[in-house]
Design a protein around this nucleic acid. Sequence first.
DNA 1: GTGGTCTAGACCACC
DNA 2: GTGGTCTAGACCACG
Lengths: 125, 125, 125, 125
Amino acid sequence: MVICIDEVSEIPIYKQIRNQIVLGISDGRLQPGEQLPTVRALAEEIGINSMTVNKAYALLKQEGYIVTDRRNGARIRNEFDQGKYLSQASLDNLQQIISEANIRGFSKEEFSNYVKSIFRRQIYV
Amino acid sequence: MVICIDEVSEIPIYKQIRNQIVLGISDGRLQPGEQLPTVRALAEEIGINSMTVNKAYALLKQEGYIVTDRRNGARIRNEFDQGKYLSQASLDNLQQIISEANIRGFSKEEFSNYVKSIFRRQIYV
Amino acid sequence: MVICIDEVSEIPIYKQIRNQIVLGISDGRLQPGEQLPTVRALAEEIGINSMTVNKAYALLKQEGYIVTDRRNGARIRNEFDQGKYLSQASLDNLQQIISEANIRGFSKEEFSNYVKSIFRRQIYV
Amino acid sequence: MVICIDEVSEIPIYKQIRNQIVLGISDGRLQPGEQLPTVRALAEEIGINSMTVNKAYALLKQEGYIVTDRRNGARIRNEFDQGKYLSQASLDNLQQIISEANIRGFSKEEFSNYVKSIFRRQIYV
DNA sequence: GTGGTCTAGACCACC
DNA sequence: GTGGTCTAGACCACG
């Protein structure tokens, strides 16, 4: 999977990496148990410092998306908690987005359909 | 409308102010055309630096939520573009939230219903 | 409060800092709401890199012991969750320690009294 | 006795082996004088590098839990020093755990009872 | 080889 | 001024 960094974005690089890997897990480009590139390899590929990749991996590990193993490097977790909850931060974000949508003229049904149109299990096999 | 600052939050204060005003517009606590407190008044009321309020107002103006004129200070915009679109930043955020939801076991329908349950036009008259 | 680093210890410096601050909170040398030295100040005082202190503070923040505030730097949290639980890591550690005690001849009562003798709310006023 | 390795754990494998053997001695699954599998056999059984098992055995020997002789391989020590003391490392760990417990609302008596509830001589004969 | 830690020094957003 | 982020390069424990 290719990681793309937007250097002018105000989102820190380590978070961009984290976001794209979460995205990859969600849409199936990254399969459970799949091997991630090593910290050094990914750093070199993107052209950034390995500490930054390290921080991204540490965050993903802390959030439970990946596991790190001294032998094999980092891997996508095998099983995820299917608890159907969102983190508080995501919930707050969602509330803000809904406010924006409301102001921009979305009705409840329109926005719900809009969300549905984005939500797709895209399995890349 | 009362603005509440969470000093502990990772979200910068100026963005908290912006978020709460957008929320207020969305749920009707702030009506189109309504006058906002002056930068100095709001800063004093909250107990923060007026530069911070200034920054929040500048952001709101740039995003098209408020208008300022030299005589009357800041006011909520009279009419909003009902174009039914989201800013690119919100769209990116939404995509991330949906990814998280997908990984946590939400189905498309479950999540869309979840969103619907949060989306409410709360008109405070 | 004085932070003392053992340079030859196998415990990473950032964790030594974290440990000593938790200890300080527990025995009252650090009061709820109390100001911590800035990242730079503590780094200089100890004679280490500020990134290392940064990492210690980030860990303490993540564990809920301190809060950071863009205006005032880092402070001890005001209120702690009194849920009477231990982290899984501490529980595992405790089990190991108890095994060692058992092998070294402690009876259940002796060890429990031993623990009691260490457990003291030492309020330094 | 079965040794189980958690590949995801942050605890190095050699220490996991050491911990489980100490646990086994404590609860009686490993009897004084009992023969341990050879380094090579255990490594093969667990499916890890024999250097890792070697390191675990070296640590156990250094801590006085096992003895090795050239002919018979490794054996659990026949008699343990019943001096009712803990290693400095364990003492430090215990102090940290008690701090955490104190902060989380445990009283001295509650925690000592909690410890007592974990402390059990489980003799597997 | 891997991830984890640390350094010295820099820049940034926020307030 | 603060904490947060990033870099370039180093060393270490682990396996």
